[in-house]
Design a protein around this nucleic acid. Sequence first.
DNA 1: TGTTTATGACCAAGGCGGACATCATCTCAG
DNA 2: CTGAGATGATGTCCGCCTTGGTCATAAACA
Lengths: 107, 107
Amino acid sequence: MTKADIISEVFDKVGLPKQDAEELVEMILDTIKLTLKEGETVKLSGFGNFVVRQKRSRKGRNPKTGQEIEITPRSVVSFRPSMIFKDHVIETDSATDGAVPAGQPAE
Amino acid sequence: MTKADIISEVFDKVGLPKQDAEELVEMILDTIKLTLKEGETVKLSGFGNFVVRQKRSRKGRNPKTGQEIEITPRSVVSFRPSMIFKDHVIETDSATDGAVPAGQPAE
DNA sequence: TGTTTATGACCAAGGCGGACATCATCTCAG
DNA sequence: CTGAGATGATGTCCGCCTTGGTCATAAACA
């Protein structure tokens, strides 16, 4: 799934014009992006947290030459998924009961 | 920053009613969530990819009791940020000296 | 819709950073 | 007000991470 698919989804569900939906999606992503670039954590309840972590200098290597190099300290973005993603497929009790909407009504 | 802040951002920029904005943001997140739950990768160009990885069984332990346990195989969601998050400020033609201005960007 | 552009995947090898198991309780986001 | 989520403690091993040319594809453009 790509960005375009999400846009189509918005278009489909809300009826928002494609270009508006696109602008909207981009804006949301951009907002998150900018926030992270400022080093601030983005908490999305029911989804996950984007955390900016400071990595110290460490030793890496050029995989091509094998040359050992110094990886400079840097900020990295780490995503910590909400527990909703924990793949507990909660089997209700009987496998025969397929009528249960497999999964996540919690919202 | 939380979800509410993003909603406010949408409200501010687009003028969409708060509740509509909220519904929209939730819908987008939900779409991503469901896609990931199906094991499909979500690619957001210019932002990052959400990848579902299959983790094999491994040994862990109960940090409370120290009891060694078997961690069951499971799916985990991994986020791989786009390279735009790489904090290299790529100056295309930054003038005369090739020297990096000490302590200018980064954080 | 078709074409162009640019973002990103890939792959090599090896070392080590850190993510993650559990579970009760408190905090704060919704 | 409610409940989702953070926290913490410890040891293990997973996979991230480096470069860079080239190719695939999403996105931007017409």
